[in-house]
Design a protein around this nucleic acid. Structure first.
Length: 661
DNA sequence: GATCCGTCATAGCG
DNA sequence: CCGCTATGACGGAT
């Protein structure tokens, strides 16, 4: 039997310790070649820059196309002129550098030639948050290293809070716009919540990682983290440009006058990309018309030059993959896949017949599994679990058809099969007296559906507005939420019935060495989306006493940390923001028995930095002291990542939920 | 009905 | 300040 304590220790510091930022520049020492011997090979001995030695990765047919589609300025002439241009570019850059720091010392023993550690007297608190309005991006290139576990937790929490705020703002802007459309503002296009949210956060200095240009990992961002919008990447500082695929420190800001790439987004926007996971053939930028067709040769400038320089100096780049994924609103997600090294680059003939730069990106070893691979793996698990993982499945539905969607039970570690042995409890069982005051007149009378909540009694109970948007995403955590229910006149399709409809995603209870049993999803869980109810049998005071005397463990809902307060909290943007206190409910003082009947929720692990929140909800009765405990995602949770709740436990209180291990 | 394409409103940055 | 960009949303066509 493992301990229930989940992902992380309970306590983490509010103040970060100082990690050591490692300066990449200014001290660099690439070998300087005499300018008259300047050749592509001397620019970079590692590169296979193929200037006139034929075409790489190009079929004869493509070459034919290339030459035939392009006369009289043949592809070869194009390459020649491009090469001349590059030579000029480098001559200028090297001349400038010679003039400036002709006496830099070589650093022979460093694995990465460009990287020379310097003093660690920078303040880490400056690394992350920018408080001034519209501050320009910094030109200081750093790599953050030596993060201690408490630092990791601090930055993780910072990223988490930042993303929560971004999502809240985005949803609010979209909803407000939708309401305005209802009123007939006459505007044709919808507001871009994704852009508005980032703008508001920028105005309040809430963008992260803007006062340093960070090479390598962004503190607090894990490999596999999911983003739904390009601007979200800008806000956390993972990738700084809203549209361009290559982010780099431009030459004029660089201490040695050369650009350095920091991150790339591979989303298949270029026909010549090849993506084999660990190895990417990445096409440089430029040369496309507005229809994304390659119409001229690419040039070795901007991001293309930066990638080449990053290769030369052995500087790693972050790779974010964007790809289609049903379930996200735009049909696309961005996944942080970790660090890659550029090992080769060359000028090639693209499918269009025009010259493109190509870069071979190789994933650095010993990193967590690629998020994009996990997504694909989860996809295959959803459709054919036994084929993909023939061993380990104990049950393909522990709910025995009670849930809309089967709940898997997986254990490839030991022989435990406990969760298969319990009665599956779909909904919490309340004592009969909570239903006393239910009856006619307790629900709304919106026969045609509740619309946007105008004149809906249930909306009024929530303070005039529904708690969800039209996609069923939780707008803001509240002391309690009133959903429409069996005593309402509205049809079951009413969108104020999100949590009572039960599980909609594919979940799996799994055995883990760290957390005993755990729960993970095979679907992407969007931030704010409903996960499941935390079910149990609610006990009367007397029953609870007997249970306690017998030594049985109970769930006390009042012990859950009130994480709902964090969801939709706009206080960092809106100084007038007040945390929702309405509708107010008395402290929850009931106990729940899960010793015989339970659902998947009680297998979720504890974390003090959880990705799931507990939100009280009422729909089938009006006793505010006995709400359903509904679980919602606090962030975009990638498939197969363990779900965690803040049980409000201290480190040494693992016994409380040991029954579920 | 899913998917593709054109169009438009965008915002950061070099 | 201007032009570029591996965006995102929508509406119409296939």
């Amino acid at each position: 039997m493992g301990s229930v304590v989940g992902l992380e220790d309970v306590n983490f510091p509010t103040e970060p310790k100082t990690p050591t930022p490692t300066m990449i520049f200014p001290k660099i020492e690439p070998k300087l070649e005499p300018l008259d011997e300047f050749t592509p090979q001397s620019i970079n001995p590692n590169s296979n820059f193929s200037y006139n030695s034929g075409f790489r990765n190009t079929t004869p047919q493509q070459q034919q196309n290339a030459t035939s589609s392009q006369t009289p300025s043949s592809i070869e002439a194009g390459v020649h002129s491009e090469y001349n241009r590059i030579s000029e570019l480098f001559q200028t850059a090297f001349a400038q550098r010679l003039q400036r720091d002709g006496d830099v010392e070589a650093n022979e023993d460093s694995g990465c030639r460009a990287i020379v550690p310097v003093s660690n007297d920078s303040q880490v608190s400056d690394i992350v948050i920018t408080r001034r309005k519209y501050e320009k991006r910094s030109s200081e290139l750093v790599r953050v290293t030596d993060l201690k576990p408490e630092d990791e937790r601090y930055f993780r929490d910072l990223i988490r809070k930042t993303r929560m705020l971004y999502d809240s703002l985005r949803i609010f802007v979209n909803l407000e716009d939708e309401n305005n459309q209802h009123l007939g503002s006459g505007r044709q296009t919808r507001a871009r919540g994704d852009l508005k949210a980032s703008q508001m956060m920028r105005e309040h200095g809430l963008w992260l990682n803007r006062d340093k240009r960070t090479v390598g990992p962004i503190p607090g961002v894990l490999v596999g983290d999911l983003f739904l919008y390009r601007m979200e990447l800008c806000v956390v500082g993972l990738h700084g440009t809203p549209q361009a695929g290559i982010d780099y420190l431009p030459a004029n800001q660089s201490s040695n006058g050369e650009p350095i790439a920091t991150s790339v987004i591979a989303s298949g926007g270029y026909e010549d990309d090849e993506d084999a996971g660990d190895v990417i053939i990445y096409t440089g930028q430029g040369g496309q018309d507005k229809n994304s067709r390659q119409v001229v040769h690419q040039k070795l400038e901007g991001g293309n030059l930066a990638l080449e320089r990053s290769m030369y100096y052995g500087v790693e780049v972050r790779v974010i993959r964007g790809f289609k994924y049903v379930g996200s609103s735009s049909g696309k997600v961005y996944v942080y896949d970790g660090l890659y090294r550029i090992t080769e680059f060359w000028f090639d003939v693209g499918k269009s017949g025009f010259g493109v730069y190509k870069y071979k990106l190789v994933r650095i070893e010993n990193q967590p599994d690629m998020g994009s691979a996990v997504l694909r793996f989860a996809e295959s698990l959803r459709t054919r679990p036994l084929e993909v993982r023939p061993m380990g499945y104990i049950s393909l539905d522990i709910s025995r058809k009670k849930e809309n969607v089967p709940v898997f039970l997986f254990n490839d570690i030991d022989n435990e099969r406990d969760p298969a042995c319990y009665d599956y409890l779909l909904k919490t069982v309340f004592p009969p007296y909570v239903y006393q005051h239910v009856g006619n007149g307790s629900g709304c009378e919106c026969t045609d559906g509740c619309g946007n909540g105008t004149n809906c009694f249930c909306a009024m109970k929530n303070g005039g507005q529904f708690a969800y948007d039209t996609n069923g995403i939780l707008l803001r955590g509240k002391p309690v939420i009133f959903e429409c229910g069996p005593h309402c006149s509205c049809p079951p399709t009413c969108w104020n019935r999100v949590s009572q409809k039960g599980v909609r995603n594919r979940f799996e209870v799994f055995r883990s060495r760290e957390t005993g049993w755990g729960v993970r999803s095979l679907d992407l869980l969007l931030a704010g989306s409903f996960i499941c109810e935390y079910t149990g049998v609610v006990l009367t005071q007397e029953q609870a006493q007997i249970f306690t005397m017998n030594g049985d463990s109970l769930i006390y809902p009042s012990h859950f940390a009130e994480r709902w307060t964090e969801w939709g909290d706009l206080s960092r943007i809106d100084s007038n923001y007040v945390r929702p206190a309405y509708p107010s409910i008395p402290p929850l003082d009931f106990a729940m028995d899960v010793s015989r009947m339970r659902n998947l929720a009680c297998y979720m692990s504890h974390s003090s930095s959880p990705n799931v929140l507990v939100q009280p909800v009422l729909y089938d009765h009006n006793s505010v002291s006995f709400p359903h405990l509904m679980l919602f995602a606090m962030e975009n949770i990638p498939p197969l990542r363990e779900l965690s709740i803040d049980y409000g436990m201290a480190d040494d209180c693992t016994g409380k939920l040991a029954i579920c291990n």
